[in-house]
């Protein structure tokens, strides 16, 4: 899959949140681990709903976790 223009700081926030694993984040966001891997690698752009769930898992705003690169 093509790289998305949406960049994210998921990896950084996972480590700031007590070395949270991708599996832990997947459980919190209600998706599979493979989807978190794809989002983190920039291979998949999540829906707004999923982006909010991921941001909430870190206690952050969507803007803090995701950014659109022009």
């Amino acid at each position: 899959m093509a790289k998305s223009k949406i960049k994210n700081n998921i990896r950084q926030f996972r480590f700031e949140n007590g070395q949270m694993t991708q599996a832990d984040l997947a459980d919190k966001a209600g998706v599979t681990r493979q989807t978190i891997i794809a989002i983190e690698a920039g291979q998949y752009s999540p829906s707004l709903e999923l982006a909010i769930k991921i941001a909430r898992a870190f206690g952050k705003k969507v803007d803090d976790v995701f950014e659109y690169e022009e």
Binding site: A23, A26, D27, G30, V31, T32, R33, Q34, T35, A38, Y44, P46, S47, E49, L50
Partner: peptide
């Protein structure tokens, strides 16, 4: 399942 909370299929699936 990979974990207890894993959905059958998420939006990407």
């Amino acid at each position: 399942k990979q974990s207890r909370h894993e959905p059958d299929a998420d939006e990407r699936d």
